[in-house]
Every structure is written in structure tokens, then in C-alpha cells.
Design a protein around this nucleic acid. Sequence first.
RNA 1: GCCGGGAUGGUGGAACUGGUAGACACAAGGGACUUAAAAUCCCUCGGCACUGAGUGCUGCGCGGGUUCGAAUCCCGCUCCCGGCACCA
Length: 880
Amino acid sequence: MDPKYHPRLIEPKWQKCWNDHGLFDADHGKARERHYVLEMFPYPSGNLHMGHVRAYVIGDVLARYYRMQGFDVLHPMGWDSLGLPAENAAIRDGIHPKQRTEQNIKSVRRQMKSLGLSLDWSREIATCDPSYYRWNQWFFIKMYERGLVYRRTSLANWCTGCLTVLANEQVVDGICERCNKPVVQRQIPDWAFRITRYADELLDDLGKLNLWPERIVSMQRNWIGRSEGVELRFPIKDNGSDHIEIFTTRADTVYGATYVVLAPEHAMVAKLTRSEQKSRVEAFVAEMSKIERARRTDAGAKKEGVWTGSYAINPFTGEEIPIWIANFVLADYGTGAVMSVPAHDQRDYEFAKQYGLPIRIVIQPQPSGEVEKHLACSDLSQAFTEDGVLYQSEKHTGLSSAQARIQIAKQAERQGIGGITIRYHLRDWGISRQRYWGTPIPMVHCEVCGIVPVPIESLPVLLPEQAPITGTGEAPLAKVPEFVNTDCPKCGKKARRETDTMDTFVDSSWYFARYLDPGEEDLPFKRESADRWLPVKIYVGGPEHAVMHLLYFRFWTKVMRDMGLVSVDEPVERLLTQGMVVGESFWCESHGYRSRDGVDDPESSEPKCTECGRTLRVRLEKMSKSKLNGVAPESMCEQYGADTARLFSLFAAPPEKDVEWNDRAVAGCYNFLRRIWVFFLRHHQRVEGYRDFAGPLDESGLSLELIALHRSLHRTIAKVTADIEKEFQFNTAIAALMELLNGCKVLDDEVDGFAEGVDPDRKQKTEQLLFMVLKNMVLLLSPFAPHVADELWKNLGMSGFAGEQPWPKFDPQATQEDTIQMAVQVNGKVRATIDVQREASEDEIRAQVEKNEKVQKWLEGKSIRRVIVVPGRLVNIVVG
RNA sequence: GCCGGGAUGGUGGAACUGGUAGACACAAGGGACUUAAAAUCCCUCGGCACUGAGUGCUGCGCGGGUUCGAAUCCCGCUCCCGGCACCA
């Protein structure tokens, strides 16, 4: 055994060895119970960062642990390799996306392997491979047949930076989440998935996800944004047949609706505009279309609008009320039209004040003295938006808001002018992208037949090798005549192919199922494989995918279920969203982000820029290249080894929390592995004769310290098992292993004593204990630090791999102490501790407590009122 | 504003169904070894007070409550983080 711990020597060796033995291939024993462990697959961007490392190591520990627990584990990896970054890079430096992607995959795969991840590489997939994306096309056509895909011309989010259409989910505060440029509204024809058809189920089934983090569930609920309300038709004055449809959640305020407002984009605007208002309305509409969504929808923006010149009739009061258009009404929510109740809606209130529209109070706070206060105040300073009691609302007056909403909805239904409706914030998923590096949409536009899907048997529609990638916003595929020009599959006449490609979220919506049968040619995957492996038992990834990816992922699963491909309702049983890896960033006013090398004394409280001497702003930020605060996993592996990198990313914090990268603490983890190494170095030869010893250990004749160590061993097994299994508390599991090692010092001392000659029976038992400690320590360590574990396993003279061994079991008997330390409290404060026999009765404990001098001191001159004995824990004496 | 999550030493973090707060690690201080440094090993380490092995008080964001006993349960606040938001 090498006297020094050299991770760089042992790690590549074992990685190769595992690979040669196909140790991590799934489906070894078909009879065993199965466990599908999945981490979100990466976009192959050339280099892994620490965030990836953390996610993959977490998943890897679980995969290795479950294997040792006897499960048949599927732990695959692949590449989310279509998408904008490769295309943008191609525009920048002229390398074809395919070439770049292949290089990157190679490099990232190598980095993953050097982390010792226990992946089944025989199932590797890449979404840019036609054998993958043909199934995107297959799904697209199947979904088209089911009415889940449709062509629409709609207001789309047009990114002024990427020059392409974005999904709602990709727009954050009116800004493109990718390039940070403004997003504007444009009428663009595109393809969309009807995810809204599943809105209810996506919402309801959140209730089944009880092993998902609450905040993710809550974010999804928020995003789906179900609201129950009433749709009402407001007839238009002097036009008997026409009406405006509005949506409201506050039908109880309908008697206070004193005007109607439409979104500027509303289809009826032109029809409703009277000639005398025409110029003003048109100018306003034109102006609005120019304003980017960010400013339009900013809550702080000034309310603006114009009157159309027309009137509607409030169907409940019969009053004529003016029809306006305004910036604060959105075309794509509800019906794009609202009834305005200025007394009870803050936006309507502000608008009414500004344009002198009537305000009528129809809700009173509560039937108390406060009513008068409100009513007396004819000019409200703001809207009263809470529920209350109806006022001046004809026969509904006096009802509570809740009651009134039901009554008014019923009345509307009876009169045939509306009824209860449910609206969602969730919109259909627009998937058309005017980009090259994506899945071609398998549709043909024929002048005779219209839109015709490509027949399933002619899939895949291959992405042409070359296309002019200019980034100008027009679909690159439209400029490739060989691609565009085709024959209509229906009539055979000349036709044109669709030239948009699919959003890459399509790829990641079902990849988890492709791993089941990556080579399958007739279907995306086999039903029997799906039944064998799904749902995914544990899915690990970053919380940044809480909304988009996970929602689409769930949607797709439900669609696949309805297509008869899978039998599960939800793709993932348990979700683990790991925290970010953050690092200290240094920012200089004049030189921007500075690397540590560009900082004078990074440890001080006021670090200075080496260029200009300015005091730098210090922050903890997600590690990134641009912020120069990252640590590359590769250099980490070179310096300390993969095992240390793995250990640190698990030990620094519980998995859901952010971890701050700390070089010193990393060294601490390295030190732990080194100390284990030294411990084995010292003892491994001594246990040569005990390789078959499987316990139980006879403790008689052993010193109390050694018995304590034996107990500690069993407790550690119990603790590590529970920590992994129950809560994924890898940090405390590793702490327990450190504690065990710390406790092993007694073995060193004991063994030192052997030189002077010792009772052979005692020596044998000690060596048996030593062996059990060494063996189990390796096995417990192996999911976390697999390379060093296998090296130590070999040095112990054991055969096979540590990771193939059954997970250690503990003996509950052996975890029990004969004497237990109990705390003695007097009036709830700890005053003494006593040692009692484990089986001691309450009376015996009381007797012992009474004898205790320290306790007596506190009882002096007081009378005992009550004594509480919590077996095995403490005694509390209540005195007065 | 709405929805979620959180607050424990100098730091990252432990603490089973309410039961000895601060495991484990980092940093810091002291010591051993060494010509010296590094490395390694050992000791101390929430705060305050007292001459001491020690003892007492105090301490889990703040204020109340329940309880023999609260970091943990309940009520009321403060602050921080994440998400959503002119969504009618």
C-alpha cells in the first residue's frame, strides 16, 4: 500500500476498471426491484461547472447507494445538445454547430468520467442526433392528430436581440431571459401545443407530488394561475346583436361598473370606434404596439386610454356606460376586456380619476360603524378592494360578496348573458423558433391541400447539413431550397416545408423515457420498459427549472399516458432541487469583475483593485465565467482529486441550500480522506486473517473504549443509512463518518500495546473489531468517495468492488449502551448528569438522583412537587 | 400586494416524535516536533462574571403564550431570500 494518498494515481485506474466491468449498466438482474435515478441532462457547453458537479454527485451517491441496497439502478446521462448557444457561437466564430457540439460533448463526457460518476454510458443520448429528434417529430405529428398541436397567428413575444419568437416562460419582465434584450409584441404565425387543455390536471396533480419541495409546487401552482370568475356579456348600445364579453373575478361589484375597457389589440376596437374618435384611437393603438411589453405591463406605469365614442349597456343596471381602450388591459388574459368598477378596483379607480369617469360605491366594508365612514367619504382616496356587503345593488343589496358572486353568476346564466368560467394564467406553449439548430417541424404547406403532416414513415425530416446562419431572425431553413421544396405528401404537387424549428424544451420534455430504449426504432421507447422503470424515483436538478422544464415535462407525460405509451400520471416521484454553488465575486467600478489575482488581499474586509486601488464590491454570486468567481471542476480534480470534490460538494451544506465555495474547507475534506488513508496504512496488514469475519463480535474482555467504538460503528451505520435514505442529508452522513474515524484513535493505542505481549483472546477480538471497522468504513464511504474506497477495499485484500457489496447492516443490540448518561434538571435547568443502567427502573433512577450531591444542593430547603422521568434522557425535578 | 422558504457561535452548519443547544468542519488562539518554515500532531474555542479543577448567570431574529421542560408547538411582529404580479 502506497504510504501516501495519491488521488491522481488511483482515480483514473478505478474509473477504467469500473468501465471495463460494465459495473453501472442497468438491467443486470431483471428480477430485482428497480430504481431510476436521474439528473437533469446538461447543455454541453464545453466545460462543466461546479453547479453541475453538485447535481451529478448528489444523484451519483443515491445511485451507488441504491445499488448497494440491492436495487437494479438505472442512472443514465445524455446531452441537451440543440439550441441557441451553439448557433450563436457559430455566428460568432464560424464553427458549425454540429462540429462544436460534438467537441463539447466529448470534453464534458471526459470531465464527467473523471468525477467517477456511476453512469450507464451504454444508454447515452444526444438530442441533436436524428435518431433522437425524429421522435420529437413523431410526437409532434401524433399530437397534431390529437388536436394538441395547432397553427395560429398570434401576438408573439419577439425578442429584439435573438430575433426570434420566445415562449412566455422565456420572457422575464419583458426581457429575454437569454440575451437580456427587450421583447416586443408582433403578429406572427407559429405552432403551439395546447398545454392549456391539461391546465386543470397539471394543477390538481400537484397534490400528488408530496415528495416535491413545497416551493416548486407553489411556483407551478402560481404559474398555472387558476382563477374562477364570471364571464358577462355587455350589449353595445345602438347595435342590438353585438356585445362585449368581459371576464371578472368580482361579479359582486357589477352594479358599480361604470365603464368598459378593451385592450388596444382587442378585435372589436375598430368596429366600436366612432368616426369622431377615430384619429385619436388609431394613434393610441399605434403607439401601444410600439411599446415593449416590459413597459406596458409595468405595474407602476401611468394609466392611459382613449374613449372609442361608443357605449355599452351594463346588463344589471341597464345603464349606458362608455367603452374605452387603455394600456393596462391585456389582450391575452381573460377576454381582453374588463368591466371597470372604480370604487373597488385600484386600477379602475386611478383611470376613472384621471379621465373623470363616475365612481359608484357598491360594496360596504362590513355591517358596522365603519360603513358610514366609507359611504360618507364620497371621494375615496383609493379603491376599496376587499370583500364586504353589497350596497345599492338592487335585490342583491345586503348579500356578502361571496354570496353575491354566486347569485349574480346564476342570474347571468338564467338570462343567457354569461356564467361561471375558469381562467388560467398558463398560456398555450408556442414552440416555433426561427432558428437553425433545432428539430425541423415536420409539416408541409401545400397550396392545394393546406397544411399536411409529413407521413410518419418518412421521418425524420433531417436538418440540412448547411444553412445560412445569420441571426437576422428569418428562419435559416427557408434559405435552403433543397430543404424547402418538396412534394405534398397528399396530392404530390409542389409544396413547401415548414422552416421553423422546435423550441428545445421539447427535447427535454421526454428524454427521460428515451433512456429506457435508446436504440429503439419503431417507437420512442417500449411500453414494457416504461412499465418497468417509470416513474423516475428521484430527479435531481436546479430550481431554475421549476416552472418551464418541469411543467412541460409533466405535460408531456400526461400526453404520453393518453397516447397509451406510459401508465404513469407524473414523471417523477421525488424531486431534489439542489442549491447553487456560489463564490465570492469582486467588482471594481472602473475595471468590472476582478479575478482573485486582480485583487489586493482578497481576505481583507476592504479588498482593493490591483489596477486602480479602488475598494471592491464583494458579493456571493453564482459561480460563473463572466463574474470570474468560479472554480473549474477540472482544476479541482487535478489538485485534490474527484473524491475530495465530491465530498466537499456534499459536506458543505444540505443539498437544497446554496454552498459557498471555500478552498480551506475543501482542503479539510481532502484531509479527512488522507487521515482515513493513514489509518488503513497502519492497520490493513493486521487484519489479513480476518477477511471472512462477519461478526457478531464477542465484546467480553474488551476495554470499555473498544466496546464504545464497536457501538459507535453500529451507530454510524445506522446514522449514515438513515441520513441518505430519509432526507438526503449527506452532510451529516459524512460528519458521522468523520466522527467514527476520530473515535478510532483508541484502536491505535490498543494496538500499540500489543508489542508488550497481550492476552491472545483479547488480541483476536480487537483485531476482529479492527477489521469490522475498516471494512464497514470503506463501504459507508464508497458512495461518497468511490475511488479511494475501492483502493482501500483492495488493500484490505477484499475481492470485487466496494460498490458491489451489500450495504452494511447494523445490529440494533450493538448500538445500545449498558449505562446511559441522563441529565438531571431542577425546574427545567440541567444541574447534574448521572450514569444509570439501561434497564434501570424509574424508582432506581429516582434513588440515584436523590443520592447525587449536586442535585441535593439545589433541593435544599425546597419541597419536591413533581418528578418527571423521561427514560433514557433526563429527569426533571420540580420544586417549589 | 399575493404565494412559498428562511433567521442557531467569528464562518458553513448539527440537534430523533418538545427532553443535556452548538455534532462535524473551517477560521482563530495556545502548545509539541523542527536550526527555521511548511507539513503533521495535541489542547482551547457562544457571551458575561468570579482567584481556581470549577461554579453561576445568560444565549437559537424580536415580543408574548402553552408546557415540568420550547431552536422545535401556538399567537403577534421584524428582517432576509426565491417566485408571481396593471391577470381584471
